[in-house]
Write a protein that binds this DNA or RNA. Structure first.
Lengths: 132, 132
DNA sequence: TTACCTGCAAAGGTTTTGCACACAG
DNA sequence: CTGTGTGCAAAACCTTTGCAGGTAA
């Protein structure tokens, strides 16, 4: 995958990709922490550069869950839509098929192809609704 | 609205709320620029604090359009879903009703109430698809 | 050997915080 | 008057960039 494009397979890149797989929802910082447990010297700069590269290659995706850092996850496997509660911050996952009626319609009517791997929906979860 | 909660109605707050209304898609920086045209001394710190306050009061919403700063818009009026092209960065708007099948199902099946005023869908627009 | 990668340090940009003064109510 | 709001400056973050040395192929 990397070599096909004249790129190199380094220990850092392997570790970072593994970390994204294992963490599921991974910020640059959490990836950095995970990687450093195995290789203490890896720099946060490398994490940023590698995540960007892996995304170009289509190996990972990222979304923005609320404020702050982006969240990366491995592409292909267990794609899901995120439900982010704006009150308690909890994150639930749902099958991306729930978006099918929307993606189909936007493709036909607006010529826009939604990237389902990046969808985050904000709102209020059941628990917080009861509390309010 | 403000006074009901023991808060004060200041010129800065009025100007910032007006700016959000007029700009439509407003980042903290663009609000700051707009406000300064009428009142040069207003500080960016006040913009941040006021936007946060206005959101708590339900007068504005914000979404995250791609990387970087959040985008604020006035609540209530002309709600729309954003279609953000990840290649060219263009932003299109669609009627939030397009999300109805999804919001209805998530409410029934997951007890999650989607805030339609905050939805941004990332993907590829028609122009960029042709180019690729 | 060669060009790609990495670590380090520093810069850049955005958002938050502390504090004293200003002012709306 | 009283306590909320504001401006200013600095700190705190997060992310990017430049550069020299390291290393995969």
């Amino acid at each position: 995958m990397l070599r096909e494009r004249g790129l190199r397979l380094t220990p850092q890149r392997q570790l970072i990709l593994e970390a994204v797989h294992e963490l599921g929802h991974a910020t640059p910082e959490s990836v950095h922490n995970a990687v450093r447990e195995r290789a203490a010297g890896v720099n946060i700069t490398t994490v940023y550069r590698t995540l960007e590269l892996l995304e170009e290659l289509g190996l990972v995706n990222h979304t923005h869950l609320s404020h702050g850092s982006p969240t990366y996850h491995a592409a292909g496997e267990d794609q899901h839509v995120h439900l982010v509660c704006r009150t308690c911050g909890s994150i639930a996952e749902v099958d991306p098929a729930v978006m099918d009626p929307v993606t189909g319609r936007l493709l036909r009517e607006r010529d826009f192809r939604v990237d389902v791997g990046h969808v985050s929906l904000f709102g209020l979860c059941g628990n917080c609704r009861e509390t309010e």
